[in-house]
């Protein structure tokens, strides 16, 4: 630290080392120990410190102020508690209302099952575009199933072609008797 920086510290923080920036305190003390000019600057700062210390201390707060503050805090505590309670109760009430409303509007399980069954029955009758193409070309998906390595009747293996030609479970079902 040089004397310029020490003067800056004294000008800003005064003469007492405990008020100086902690990181620079040791260097400032070392410079003071070796420099009469630095000590003169410190003494000058100490005179202003002494004048500042002569300023009257602000009056102590009246004894009842703390009690007054605590008394004023209590009503706020009730407001805060109500707000906290509302923050929990309102969303719960809204959720409960939503559940009741949905239950009221939703079809009963019995009716839902009947509707689903009817829909499923209709879907079962619908031929997909793939079915139509296969119908016109007389080609069946089972034809593409590899048969190599399969023995007749083995689980997962299609039935091998018979003398009448290609077969699949679907063709068997669809051939008119």
């Amino acid at each position: 630290m040089d004397e310029i920086r020490l003067r800056q510290i004294l000008d800003a923080y005064g003469a007492r080392p405990e008020r100086w920036p902690e990181a620079e305190r040791a260097a400032a003390r070392a410079l003071l120990a070796s420099s009469p000019a630095a000590r003169a600057a410190q003494a000058d700062a100490a005179r202003l410190d002494a004048l500042l210390d002569a300023a009257p201390a602000p009056p102590a707060p009246p004894a009842e102020l703390a009690a007054r503050i605590v008394a004023a805090a209590r009503p706020r505590a009730r407001v805060v508690s109500l707000r906290r309670a509302a923050a929990v109760v309102v969303p719960l009430a809204a959720a409960a209302g939503l559940v009741l409303w949905l239950q009221h509007r939703a079809p009963s399980p019995g009716r839902a099952s009947a509707a689903d069954l009817a829909l499923a029955a209709r879907l079962d009758d619908v031929a997909t575009p793939s079915d139509d193409l296969l119908d016109t070309s007389d080609a069946w998906a089972a034809d593409t199933t590899p048969t190599w390595g399969c023995a007749t009747g083995e689980l997962g293996c299609p039935d091998l072609p018979t003398a009448t030609g290609r077969q699949s479970r679907r063709t068997t079902e669809r051939i008119p008797v």
Binding site: D11, A12, R47, L51, L52
Partner: peptide, 21 residues
């Protein structure tokens, strides 16, 4: 801080110059 102390020194020099050296 430095400006505050400089300002105080100037103002107080008129009141108590001997106390400020």
């Amino acid at each position: 801080l430095a400006r505050a102390r400089r300002g105080l020194r100037t103002r107080l020099a008129a009141v108590a110059p001997e106390l400020l050296g």
